[in-house]
Nucleic acid binder design. Structure first.
Lengths: 176, 176
DNA sequence: TATACTTCTTAATTTAGATCAATGCACCCC
DNA sequence: GGGGTGCATTGATCTAAATTAAGAAGTATA
Protein backbone atom coordinates (compact mmCIF):
# COMPACT_ATOMS: atom_id res chain seq x y z
CA UNK A 1 0.00 0.00 0.00
CA UNK A 2 3.06 2.26 0.07
CA UNK A 3 3.66 4.84 -2.58
CA UNK A 4 7.43 4.64 -2.37
CA UNK A 5 7.62 3.64 -6.01
CA UNK A 6 6.72 7.15 -6.94
CA UNK A 7 9.92 8.54 -8.38
CA UNK A 8 8.82 11.84 -9.79
CA UNK A 9 9.92 13.55 -6.62
CA UNK A 10 13.11 14.14 -8.59
CA UNK A 11 11.12 16.29 -10.94
CA UNK A 12 13.13 19.53 -11.37
CA UNK A 13 9.91 21.54 -11.07
CA UNK A 14 9.41 20.15 -7.57
CA UNK A 15 9.92 22.41 -4.57
CA UNK A 16 10.44 20.89 -1.16
CA UNK A 17 8.98 22.78 1.77
CA UNK A 18 8.20 22.67 5.47
CA UNK A 19 4.82 23.54 6.97
CA UNK A 20 3.57 23.93 10.52
CA UNK A 21 0.67 21.87 11.83
CA UNK A 22 -2.55 23.58 10.88
CA UNK A 23 -1.27 25.17 7.70
CA UNK A 24 -3.84 25.22 4.91
CA UNK A 25 -2.34 23.99 1.66
CA UNK A 26 -5.43 24.26 -0.49
CA UNK A 27 -8.76 26.03 -0.17
CA UNK A 28 -12.10 25.24 -1.73
CA UNK A 29 -12.39 27.22 -4.91
CA UNK A 30 -8.70 27.17 -5.75
CA UNK A 31 -7.63 26.62 -9.33
CA UNK A 32 -4.22 25.70 -10.81
CA UNK A 33 -3.93 22.99 -8.18
CA UNK A 34 -0.80 21.27 -6.95
CA UNK A 35 -0.38 17.75 -5.70
CA UNK A 36 1.64 17.11 -2.55
CA UNK A 37 4.06 14.29 -1.94
CA UNK A 38 4.48 13.87 1.82
CA UNK A 39 8.06 13.28 2.96
CA UNK A 40 7.35 13.57 6.68
CA UNK A 41 4.22 14.42 8.63
CA UNK A 42 0.51 14.04 8.02
CA UNK A 43 -1.93 15.84 5.77
CA UNK A 44 -5.64 15.47 5.10
CA UNK A 45 -8.17 16.60 2.52
CA UNK A 46 -11.82 17.31 3.33
CA UNK A 47 -14.99 18.97 2.09
CA UNK A 48 -17.55 21.07 3.88
CA UNK A 49 -21.08 20.21 2.82
CA UNK A 50 -24.12 22.43 2.42
CA UNK A 51 -25.00 22.03 6.11
CA UNK A 52 -21.51 23.13 7.14
CA UNK A 53 -20.37 19.65 8.10
CA UNK A 54 -16.83 18.46 7.42
CA UNK A 55 -16.11 15.18 5.63
CA UNK A 56 -12.57 13.85 5.53
CA UNK A 57 -11.82 12.53 2.07
CA UNK A 58 -8.36 11.17 2.75
CA UNK A 59 -5.34 11.11 5.02
CA UNK A 60 -1.81 11.25 3.60
CA UNK A 61 1.06 10.14 5.84
CA UNK A 62 4.66 9.62 4.76
CA UNK A 63 5.19 8.61 1.11
CA UNK A 64 1.63 9.36 0.08
CA UNK A 65 0.43 11.78 -2.52
CA UNK A 66 -2.58 13.98 -1.94
CA UNK A 67 -4.38 16.37 -4.24
CA UNK A 68 -7.67 16.84 -6.05
CA UNK A 69 -7.38 14.74 -9.16
CA UNK A 70 -11.11 15.12 -9.75
CA UNK A 71 -10.93 18.90 -10.06
CA UNK A 72 -7.84 18.64 -12.24
CA UNK A 73 -9.36 16.09 -14.61
CA UNK A 74 -12.67 17.86 -15.01
CA UNK A 75 -11.11 21.31 -14.98
CA UNK A 76 -13.19 23.00 -12.33
CA UNK A 77 -12.34 24.69 -9.02
CA UNK A 78 -11.71 22.25 -6.20
CA UNK A 79 -14.23 21.34 -3.50
CA UNK A 80 -11.46 20.08 -1.22
CA UNK A 81 -9.57 21.78 1.56
CA UNK A 82 -6.15 20.36 2.34
CA UNK A 83 -4.33 21.04 5.60
CA UNK A 84 -1.52 19.73 7.80
CA UNK A 85 -2.40 17.61 10.84
CA UNK A 86 1.27 17.59 11.90
CA UNK A 87 4.36 19.61 11.09
CA UNK A 88 4.96 18.41 7.57
CA UNK A 89 7.72 18.30 5.01
CA UNK A 90 6.42 17.85 1.51
CA UNK A 91 7.14 18.34 -2.14
CA UNK A 92 4.79 20.36 -4.29
CA UNK A 93 4.15 18.81 -7.67
CA UNK A 94 2.48 20.19 -10.71
CA UNK A 95 -0.75 18.29 -11.35
CA UNK A 96 0.26 17.52 -14.91
CA UNK A 97 3.22 15.52 -13.66
CA UNK A 98 0.91 12.61 -14.30
CA UNK A 99 0.68 12.90 -18.03
CA UNK A 100 3.20 15.50 -19.07
CA UNK A 101 4.83 15.02 -22.44
CA UNK A 102 8.41 15.00 -21.29
CA UNK A 103 7.90 12.02 -19.00
CA UNK A 104 9.70 8.83 -19.88
CA UNK A 105 7.98 5.58 -20.73
CA UNK A 106 8.92 4.17 -17.34
CA UNK A 107 7.68 7.19 -15.47
CA UNK A 108 4.34 6.98 -17.23
CA UNK A 109 4.05 3.33 -16.31
CA UNK A 110 4.87 4.10 -12.67
CA UNK A 111 2.20 6.77 -12.64
CA UNK A 112 -0.29 4.34 -14.11
CA UNK A 113 0.39 1.88 -11.33
CA UNK A 114 0.04 4.69 -8.81
CA UNK A 115 -3.30 5.79 -10.20
CA UNK A 116 -4.44 2.19 -10.45
CA UNK A 117 -3.84 1.78 -6.73
CA UNK A 118 -5.74 4.95 -6.05
CA UNK A 119 -8.66 3.55 -8.00
CA UNK A 120 -8.44 0.32 -6.02
CA UNK A 121 -8.47 2.18 -2.72
CA UNK A 122 -11.47 4.25 -3.74
CA UNK A 123 -13.33 1.18 -4.93
CA UNK A 124 -12.91 -0.43 -1.54
CA UNK A 125 -14.03 2.77 0.13
CA UNK A 126 -17.19 3.01 -1.98
CA UNK A 127 -18.16 -0.58 -1.28
CA UNK A 128 -17.43 -0.04 2.41
CA UNK A 129 -19.62 3.06 2.54
CA UNK A 130 -22.44 1.22 0.79
CA UNK A 131 -22.49 -1.91 2.92
CA UNK A 132 -20.65 -1.68 6.22
CA UNK A 133 -22.10 -0.76 9.63
CA UNK A 134 -20.32 1.73 11.86
CA UNK A 135 -18.54 -1.04 13.73
CA UNK A 136 -17.43 -2.76 10.56
CA UNK A 137 -16.11 0.50 9.17
CA UNK A 138 -13.90 1.08 12.15
CA UNK A 139 -12.61 -2.50 12.04
CA UNK A 140 -11.73 -2.11 8.36
CA UNK A 141 -9.96 1.16 9.07
CA UNK A 142 -7.88 -0.38 11.85
CA UNK A 143 -7.01 -3.19 9.49
CA UNK A 144 -6.04 -0.96 6.58
CA UNK A 145 -4.19 1.72 8.55
CA UNK A 146 -2.97 0.16 11.80
CA UNK A 147 -0.57 2.99 12.51
CA UNK A 148 -2.74 5.99 11.81
CA UNK A 149 -5.23 5.96 14.72
CA UNK A 150 -2.59 7.11 17.21
CA UNK A 151 -1.81 10.14 15.10
CA UNK A 152 -5.32 11.29 14.24
CA UNK A 153 -8.01 12.71 16.53
CA UNK A 154 -10.97 10.39 16.75
CA UNK A 155 -13.49 12.83 15.41
CA UNK A 156 -11.53 12.96 12.16
CA UNK A 157 -11.43 9.20 11.89
CA UNK A 158 -15.18 9.18 12.45
CA UNK A 159 -15.57 11.74 9.69
CA UNK A 160 -13.46 9.63 7.33
CA UNK A 161 -15.68 6.63 8.10
CA UNK A 162 -18.87 8.59 7.53
CA UNK A 163 -20.10 8.35 11.13
CA UNK A 164 -20.29 10.79 14.06
CA UNK A 165 -17.61 11.08 16.77
CA UNK A 166 -20.21 9.98 19.32
CA UNK A 167 -20.95 6.81 17.40
CA UNK A 168 -17.26 5.97 17.12
CA UNK A 169 -16.73 6.60 20.81
CA UNK A 170 -19.53 4.17 21.67
CA UNK A 171 -18.13 1.52 19.35
CA UNK A 172 -14.70 1.79 20.92
CA UNK A 173 -16.22 1.65 24.40
CA UNK A 174 -18.08 -1.59 23.94
CA UNK A 175 -15.19 -3.22 22.09
CA UNK A 176 -13.24 -4.26 25.22
CA UNK B 1 -17.70 11.94 -19.30
CA UNK B 2 -17.38 9.74 -22.37
CA UNK B 3 -14.60 7.24 -22.73
CA UNK B 4 -14.44 7.50 -26.47
CA UNK B 5 -10.82 8.53 -26.29
CA UNK B 6 -9.95 5.02 -25.37
CA UNK B 7 -8.18 3.70 -28.43
CA UNK B 8 -6.80 0.40 -27.25
CA UNK B 9 -9.81 -1.34 -28.67
CA UNK B 10 -7.54 -1.83 -31.67
CA UNK B 11 -5.33 -4.00 -29.49
CA UNK B 12 -4.68 -7.18 -31.50
CA UNK B 13 -5.22 -9.25 -28.37
CA UNK B 14 -8.77 -7.94 -28.15
CA UNK B 15 -11.66 -10.26 -28.99
CA UNK B 16 -15.04 -8.80 -29.83
CA UNK B 17 -18.04 -10.75 -28.67
CA UNK B 18 -21.79 -10.71 -28.26
CA UNK B 19 -23.63 -11.66 -25.07
CA UNK B 20 -27.27 -12.12 -24.17
CA UNK B 21 -28.91 -10.12 -21.41
CA UNK B 22 -28.26 -11.84 -18.11
CA UNK B 23 -24.93 -13.37 -19.09
CA UNK B 24 -22.42 -13.39 -16.26
CA UNK B 25 -19.05 -12.12 -17.42
CA UNK B 26 -17.22 -12.37 -14.13
CA UNK B 27 -17.84 -14.20 -10.86
CA UNK B 28 -16.65 -13.43 -7.37
CA UNK B 29 -13.45 -15.34 -6.77
CA UNK B 30 -12.25 -15.23 -10.37
CA UNK B 31 -8.59 -14.59 -11.08
CA UNK B 32 -6.81 -13.59 -14.30
CA UNK B 33 -9.44 -10.95 -14.84
CA UNK B 34 -10.38 -9.21 -18.04
CA UNK B 35 -11.64 -5.71 -18.57
CA UNK B 36 -14.58 -5.10 -20.88
CA UNK B 37 -15.01 -2.25 -23.32
CA UNK B 38 -18.71 -1.91 -24.11
CA UNK B 39 -19.52 -1.29 -27.77
CA UNK B 40 -23.27 -1.65 -27.43
CA UNK B 41 -25.50 -2.57 -24.53
CA UNK B 42 -25.27 -2.22 -20.77
CA UNK B 43 -23.25 -4.02 -18.14
CA UNK B 44 -22.97 -3.69 -14.38
CA UNK B 45 -20.64 -4.81 -11.61
CA UNK B 46 -21.79 -5.57 -8.08
CA UNK B 47 -20.86 -7.28 -4.83
CA UNK B 48 -22.89 -9.44 -2.49
CA UNK B 49 -22.20 -8.61 1.15
CA UNK B 50 -22.07 -10.88 4.19
CA UNK B 51 -25.85 -10.54 4.68
CA UNK B 52 -26.49 -11.59 1.09
CA UNK B 53 -27.40 -8.12 -0.10
CA UNK B 54 -26.35 -6.86 -3.54
CA UNK B 55 -24.55 -3.55 -4.01
CA UNK B 56 -24.12 -2.17 -7.52
CA UNK B 57 -20.62 -0.79 -7.91
CA UNK B 58 -20.99 0.62 -11.40
CA UNK B 59 -22.92 0.67 -14.63
CA UNK B 60 -21.15 0.60 -17.99
CA UNK B 61 -23.12 1.71 -21.06
CA UNK B 62 -21.70 2.28 -24.53
CA UNK B 63 -18.04 3.38 -24.68
CA UNK B 64 -17.35 2.60 -21.04
CA UNK B 65 -14.84 0.22 -19.62
CA UNK B 66 -15.67 -2.04 -16.72
CA UNK B 67 -13.54 -4.41 -14.71
CA UNK B 68 -12.05 -4.89 -11.26
CA UNK B 69 -8.97 -2.71 -11.19
CA UNK B 70 -8.75 -3.15 -7.43
CA UNK B 71 -8.35 -6.92 -7.63
CA UNK B 72 -5.89 -6.56 -10.50
CA UNK B 73 -3.73 -4.01 -8.71
CA UNK B 74 -3.62 -5.79 -5.40
CA UNK B 75 -3.44 -9.24 -7.01
CA UNK B 76 -6.25 -10.99 -5.21
CA UNK B 77 -9.43 -12.73 -6.41
CA UNK B 78 -12.22 -10.34 -7.30
CA UNK B 79 -15.17 -9.51 -5.05
CA UNK B 80 -17.18 -8.27 -8.02
CA UNK B 81 -19.71 -9.99 -10.19
CA UNK B 82 -20.18 -8.53 -13.65
CA UNK B 83 -23.23 -9.24 -15.81
CA UNK B 84 -25.14 -7.93 -18.80
CA UNK B 85 -28.30 -5.88 -18.21
CA UNK B 86 -29.00 -5.82 -21.95
CA UNK B 87 -27.84 -7.80 -24.96
CA UNK B 88 -24.31 -6.53 -25.20
CA UNK B 89 -21.50 -6.34 -27.69
CA UNK B 90 -18.14 -5.85 -26.04
CA UNK B 91 -14.42 -6.26 -26.41
CA UNK B 92 -12.48 -8.26 -23.87
CA UNK B 93 -9.20 -6.65 -22.90
CA UNK B 94 -6.33 -8.00 -20.94
CA UNK B 95 -6.06 -6.13 -17.65
CA UNK B 96 -2.45 -5.22 -18.28
CA UNK B 97 -3.46 -3.23 -21.34
CA UNK B 98 -3.10 -0.32 -18.94
CA UNK B 99 0.61 -0.54 -18.35
CA UNK B 100 1.91 -3.07 -20.83
CA UNK B 101 5.43 -2.51 -22.09
CA UNK B 102 4.66 -2.43 -25.76
CA UNK B 103 2.26 0.50 -25.43
CA UNK B 104 3.24 3.72 -27.08
CA UNK B 105 3.87 6.95 -25.23
CA UNK B 106 0.57 8.34 -26.48
CA UNK B 107 -1.36 5.27 -25.48
CA UNK B 108 0.07 5.42 -21.98
CA UNK B 109 -0.95 9.05 -21.72
CA UNK B 110 -4.46 8.22 -22.89
CA UNK B 111 -4.70 5.51 -20.30
CA UNK B 112 -3.54 7.91 -17.62
CA UNK B 113 -6.27 10.33 -18.54
CA UNK B 114 -8.77 7.48 -18.49
CA UNK B 115 -7.71 6.35 -15.05
CA UNK B 116 -7.64 9.94 -13.83
CA UNK B 117 -11.28 10.29 -14.80
CA UNK B 118 -12.09 7.07 -13.02
CA UNK B 119 -10.46 8.46 -9.89
CA UNK B 120 -12.48 11.65 -10.26
CA UNK B 121 -15.72 9.73 -10.60
CA UNK B 122 -14.98 7.63 -7.54
CA UNK B 123 -14.02 10.68 -5.52
CA UNK B 124 -17.39 12.24 -6.25
CA UNK B 125 -19.10 9.00 -5.35
CA UNK B 126 -17.31 8.74 -2.01
CA UNK B 127 -18.18 12.30 -1.06
CA UNK B 128 -21.76 11.69 -2.15
CA UNK B 129 -22.06 8.56 -0.04
CA UNK B 130 -20.66 10.39 2.97
CA UNK B 131 -22.84 13.46 2.85
CA UNK B 132 -25.93 13.20 0.67
CA UNK B 133 -29.43 12.21 1.74
CA UNK B 134 -31.43 9.70 -0.29
CA UNK B 135 -33.15 12.50 -2.22
CA UNK B 136 -29.90 14.29 -2.96
CA UNK B 137 -28.31 11.07 -4.19
CA UNK B 138 -31.04 10.47 -6.71
CA UNK B 139 -30.87 14.06 -7.93
CA UNK B 140 -27.11 13.74 -8.42
CA UNK B 141 -27.58 10.50 -10.30
CA UNK B 142 -30.15 12.02 -12.65
CA UNK B 143 -27.76 14.88 -13.24
CA UNK B 144 -24.72 12.70 -13.92
CA UNK B 145 -26.45 10.03 -15.99
CA UNK B 146 -29.58 11.57 -17.53
CA UNK B 147 -30.00 8.74 -20.03
CA UNK B 148 -29.48 5.72 -17.84
CA UNK B 149 -32.63 5.69 -15.68
CA UNK B 150 -34.81 4.54 -18.55
CA UNK B 151 -32.59 1.54 -19.16
CA UNK B 152 -32.08 0.34 -15.59
CA UNK B 153 -34.61 -1.13 -13.17
CA UNK B 154 -35.17 1.18 -10.24
CA UNK B 155 -34.08 -1.29 -7.61
CA UNK B 156 -30.63 -1.36 -9.22
CA UNK B 157 -30.39 2.40 -9.25
CA UNK B 158 -31.33 2.36 -5.58
CA UNK B 159 -28.59 -0.17 -4.95
CA UNK B 160 -26.05 2.01 -6.78
CA UNK B 161 -27.08 4.95 -4.63
CA UNK B 162 -26.83 2.98 -1.41
CA UNK B 163 -30.54 3.16 -0.56
CA UNK B 164 -33.43 0.67 -0.70
CA UNK B 165 -35.83 0.39 -3.65
CA UNK B 166 -38.67 1.41 -1.29
CA UNK B 167 -36.87 4.62 -0.33
CA UNK B 168 -36.25 5.48 -3.98
CA UNK B 169 -39.86 4.79 -4.87
CA UNK B 170 -41.03 7.21 -2.18
CA UNK B 171 -38.62 9.90 -3.33
CA UNK B 172 -39.83 9.61 -6.90
CA UNK B 173 -43.45 9.67 -5.75
CA UNK B 174 -43.24 12.92 -3.85
CA UNK B 175 -41.13 14.57 -6.52
CA UNK B 176 -44.08 15.58 -8.75
C1' DT C 1 -55.66 -17.06 -21.96
C1' DA C 2 -53.96 -18.38 -17.92
C1' DT C 3 -49.74 -18.55 -14.89
C1' DA C 4 -45.77 -17.06 -12.99
C1' DC C 5 -42.09 -13.91 -12.62
C1' DT C 6 -40.31 -9.36 -11.89
C1' DT C 7 -40.68 -4.82 -10.68
C1' DC C 8 -42.86 -0.99 -8.39
C1' DT C 9 -45.71 1.09 -4.91
C1' DT C 10 -47.69 1.95 -0.41
C1' DA C 11 -48.06 1.64 4.47
C1' DA C 12 -46.81 0.00 9.41
C1' DT C 13 -43.04 -0.92 12.29
C1' DT C 14 -38.33 -1.02 13.72
C1' DT C 15 -33.66 0.45 14.21
C1' DA C 16 -28.96 2.25 13.63
C1' DG C 17 -27.04 6.07 14.05
C1' DA C 18 -27.73 11.28 14.36
C1' DT C 19 -28.61 14.95 17.19
C1' DC C 20 -28.72 17.24 21.47
C1' DA C 21 -26.89 18.01 25.94
C1' DA C 22 -24.00 17.54 29.98
C1' DT C 23 -19.70 16.24 32.04
C1' DG C 24 -14.82 15.13 32.38
C1' DC C 25 -10.06 15.62 30.86
C1' DA C 26 -6.21 17.21 28.81
C1' DC C 27 -3.37 20.56 27.28
C1' DC C 28 -2.34 25.10 26.47
C1' DC C 29 -1.11 30.06 27.48
C1' DC C 30 -1.57 34.44 29.90
C1' DG D 1 -2.31 28.34 39.26
C1' DG D 2 -6.65 29.47 37.04
C1' DG D 3 -9.42 29.81 32.97
C1' DG D 4 -9.92 28.75 28.27
C1' DT D 5 -10.27 25.76 24.26
C1' DG D 6 -10.44 21.36 22.13
C1' DC D 7 -11.56 16.45 22.42
C1' DA D 8 -13.68 12.28 24.24
C1' DT D 9 -17.35 10.08 26.71
C1' DT D 10 -22.02 9.05 28.16
C1' DG D 11 -26.94 9.14 28.10
C1' DA D 12 -31.63 10.78 26.40
C1' DT D 13 -34.12 11.75 22.51
C1' DC D 14 -35.11 11.97 17.58
C1' DT D 15 -35.27 10.78 12.74
C1' DA D 16 -34.18 9.08 8.12
C1' DA D 17 -34.19 5.20 6.15
C1' DA D 18 -34.34 -0.01 6.70
C1' DT D 19 -37.24 -3.74 7.28
C1' DT D 20 -41.38 -6.13 6.78
C1' DA D 21 -45.48 -7.10 4.49
C1' DA D 22 -49.13 -6.79 0.83
C1' DG D 23 -50.79 -5.82 -3.17
C1' DA D 24 -50.76 -3.80 -8.03
C1' DA D 25 -49.05 -3.63 -12.54
C1' DG D 26 -46.40 -5.04 -16.06
C1' DT D 27 -44.01 -8.88 -18.97
C1' DA D 28 -42.73 -13.12 -20.19
C1' DT D 29 -43.74 -18.20 -20.42
C1' DA D 30 -46.38 -22.16 -21.56
Amino acid sequence: MSHSDFLLVDDPSAQKTLFKKGTVLQNKGDVHLKAFYIKKGLVRSYTIDSKGKQHVFMFAPEEWIIGDIEAYQYEHPTELFIDCLEDTELIKLKMDHLDQDHLSHDQLKKNLRLLGRRVGLLQRRVLMLMSATAGERYALFLNDYPLLPNRIPQYMIASYLGITPEALSKIRGQKT
